[in-house]
């Protein structure tokens, strides 16, 4: 009885949150709905005895990624309803519809028929006698070590790429706004923007 109630409540929160992400006009409200969905999923993880996944779900997704979304929304000041009349890319909406239907159909096929992999989507059960941190750790660092290391390389590439992109304009254009607040002893005198036109600065640096 209790597991069913927990499932229904958590699933309702998930679905309501997901609808909220799509239907809210205000991006901040959408981001908060996303947090609700993530929490619903975390509760479902706990109901399946996967406490570690639940905690990581909250720490990584709700605590870091959505915070970054909100951060960007606040910094860029796009927290107003967007004009939905014009399509940014032609044919984007029909394509999105088709792709969404395909993915949804695929998910349902995997869940219901289990014809694609020949197995049910859930593999082995969690061993209740061991803490699930141990079980995940053992699997991750033995059977799935290759995938794990590849993922870490991917993340390093992403970080390096972000740094390179962010520093490209320095110290003339965009990055200057940040540099201006930083004292001279650390980064040298900030360039005064009125002596050199921004275009020249970019040329010189390159």
């Amino acid at each position: 009885m209790v597991p069913i109630i927990v499932f229904v409540v958590a699933a309702a929160i998930c679905v309501a949150g997901a609808l909220g992400v799509v239907l809210n006009r205000n991006p901040v409200h959408s981001a908060l709905s996303l947090v609700a969905t993530l929490f619903g999923v975390a509760v479902l993880f706990i109901a399946q005895d996967a406490q570690f996944l639940a905690a990581v779900q909250v720490i990584v997704y709700a605590g870091a990624i959505v915070v970054l979304f909100l951060f960007v929304i606040m910094l860029l000041g796009v927290d107003r309803a967007e004009n939905l009349e014009s399509e940014p890319l032609t044919g984007q909406r029909p394509a999105a519809l088709v792709a969404g239907l395909l993915i949804g159909g695929g998910l349902i096929a995997v869940l219901v028929a289990s014809t694609i992999t020949g197995k049910h989507s859930s593999g082995a059960k969690v061993d209740p006698a061991q803490a699930n941190v141990n079980q995940i750790g053992r699997l991750l660092f033995t059977d799935h070590l290759w995938a794990f290391e590849i993922t870490s390389v991917l993340l390093v590439i992403a970080v390096v790429g972000a740094v390179v992109l962010a520093r490209r304009g320095a110290p003339g254009s965009g990055a200057d706004a940040v540099d201006a607040g930083i004292p001279a002893d650390d980064f040298g005198e900030p360039a005064s923007p009125d002596t050199v036109p921004p275009n020249d600065v970019e040329e010189t640096v390159r």
């Binding site: 901040v28 908060l32 947090v35 406490q51 570690f52 639940a54 905690a55 990581v56 909250v58 720490i59 709700a62 605590g63 870091a64 915070v67 909100l70 951060f71 606040m74 803490a131 699930n132 941190v133």
Partner: peptide
Amino acid sequence: DPPIGVLLVLAMSSIAVYGVML
């Protein structure tokens, strides 16, 4: 006393950002 007690502490400290931010 959840088996992931310390992670719960970290999760809550990351949720605390929302109050201030919002």
